[in-house]
Design a protein around this nucleic acid. Structure first.
Length: 471
RNA sequence: GCUCUCUUCGUCUAGUGGUUAGGACGCUGGCCUCUCACGCCGGUAACACGAGUUCGAAUCUCGUAGGGAGCGCCA
């Protein structure tokens, strides 16, 4: 049977990075083996499932580029099928009706807790005759002895003793099927060969295997991948910053960077850090995934993101950047060619948001000088060089970087100053800050008119500052 | 509490009985340089602990400690 994996999120929120990594591993495993990858929405919890969540998850999957071959399937549309299986189990006496009240169940649990036992159903209704006409749930008749052996592809062999397990509910009083039943049926019907999921499901696995055995079916291969922790090693939550995949997009992270970061969390291939999607497919092996949970490190994600920004197609970056410029209220059509700006800025930004921020001055006059930069560079000593630069620039018709570079060099030469003494005040004058791309290309892209205007503004600033400091 | 499980630099990891315990991020010293960044060269820092097994243990075994997950008419 050819390989088939699935990603089965429950639509009770956005897609978070842990889910995304599980999806990536499943996707890679399927692609690696030339198999199929299916998407299934586990929406049987009618209370908590929302269409907004479904859309958010689909959007995130699309953004990441984790395309699926089948689905999305919705469990809520498969209730008839689940009932069919439940009825079959009931008929074969592999399941039974239970009318234990919540009160009895609560009392049972409380007693067990007090006796320091593992809380579980005591099988009270196993031999009881409960009719169809009264309110009841259906429980699976779990084997009482023997054990379940799971040869997990990442955890290795795990053994569970049946006497640790109880008779789980597979159909609620309201007639709806429960998770452990629906996964089993779906994975069976969809012919899933490899179940790759978070390791919070390890303890459910023996129950699912027992249901499978009762149905006379072979279990799939399992691979339980560890969780992702926050920067501080505790469970990942909103207080760690972004956890939603789409939030990373909003913060200017490239999807290939997020995928690359995620694949290296718990998996490695020698000393390699950077992988294209094709390389991931080539080298990935679910058996190489680590067992221990790993902490999400934003610094490293930013480093990887910068790598991809540096190497991305400038035209594509320009398209993405224009969105972030728009967030700043800037229309890139009103200034220099965005692709040219990107070419200069892409090795200076770790995210597209950063790139937008450091590129804003190309499109509009800065609000104020950066305080430290102005203090350091816009002082009396800068007056003369700036004035001379202004004079030369005014006469310059051919506004391109070679000529501009020449002008700056000449002013430095004439005044007997090194380049820094001339270029830095000029940079602060033109960009408002102490850091920017090379001064010549910066001048060229900002444009003659804006440069002259901003130099005047800087000269004015220096003028008032000199006056104030005068005795 | 019970069941399952995890443990190499701050972080992600390589390592499968013999290594100066390697790489990457971060931090840091330097080079380059008109600034920032990129790039390049260097530094920092780890086998949780304790017993075994062995000539030899990060690697095998058993404990201990610490962490995680599960124990729902949630998924």
């Amino acid at each position: 049977m050819s390989t088939k994996t699935r990603f089965a999120p429950s639509p009770t929120g956005y897609l978070h990075v842990g889910g995304a990594r599980t999806a990536l591993f499943s996707w890679l495993h399927a692609r690696k083996h030339g198999g199929k990858y299916v998407l299934r929405i586990e929406d049987t919890d009618l209370q908590r499932s929302t269409t907004e969540s479904i859309n958010a998850i689909l959007e995130a999957m699309t953004w990441l580029g984790l395309d699926y071959d089948e689905g999305p399937f919705y469990q809520t549309r498969r209730f008839d099928r689940y009932n069919e299986v439940i009825d079959e189990l009931l008929e074969k006496n592999l399941a039974y009706r239970c009318n234990c009240s919540r009160e009895r169940l609560d009392a049972l649990r409380e007693g067990q807790m007090q006796r320091k036992e593992k809380p579980r159903y005591d099988g009270h209704c196993r031999g009881q005759l409960v009719t169809d006409s009264e309110p009841h749930v259906i429980r699976f008749r779990n084997p009482v002895d023997g054990c379940v052996i799971i040869d997990d592809q990442v955890r290795g062999r795990i053994v569970f003793h049946n006497d640790e397990l109880d008779d789980l509910i597979i159909r609620r009083t309201d007639g709806s099927p429960t998770y452990n039943l629906t996964v089993v049926v779906d994975d069976l019907d969809m012919e899933i060969t490899d179940v790759i999921r978070g390791d919070d499901h390890v303890n459910n696995t023996p129950r699912q295997v027992n249901i499978l055995k009762a149905l006379g079916k072979e279990p799939p291969r399992y691979a339980h991948v560890p969780m992702i922790l926050g920067d501080d090693g505790s469970r990942l939550s909103k207080r760690h910053g972004a956890v939603s995949v789409m939030e990373y997009r909003n913060q200017g992270i490239l999807p290939e960077a997020l995928l690359n970061y995620l694949v290296r969390l718990g998996w490695s291939h020698g000393d390699e850090e950077l992988f294209t999607l094709d390389q991931m497919v080539e080298f990935f092996d679910i058996k190489d995934v680590n067992k221990a949970a790993s902490a999400f490190n934003t610094e490293k994600l930013l480093w990887i993101n910068q790598h991809y920004i540096k190497n991305a197609d400038p035209a594509r970056l320009a398209r993405l950047l224009s969105i972030h410029l728009g967030d700043l209220g800037i229309d890139p059509a009103t200034g220099p060619d965005l692709v040219a700006v990107v070419a200069e800025q892409r090795e200076r930004a770790r995210t597209l948001v950063e790139m937008a921020e450091i590129s804003a001055f190309f499109y509009r006059d800065y609000e104020d000088f950066d305080e430290g930069a102005a203090k350091k560079h816009l002082k009396a000593a800068a007056q003369e060089p700036l004035q001379q630069l202004r004079d030369r620039f005014t006469l310059l018709d051919d506004w391109e970087k070679e000529k501009l570079h020449q002008a700056v060099t000449e002013v430095a030469g004439v005044l007997g100053l090194n380049m820094g003494k001339v270029a830095q005040p000029l940079r602060v004058a033109v960009t408002g800050r102490a850091a920017s791309p090379g001064i010549d290309i910066t001048l060229q892209l900002v444009g003659k008119e804006a440069c002259l205007r901003r130099i005047d503004r800087a000269l004015e600033y220096i003028g008032t500052r000199v006056e104030e400091n005068a005795p």
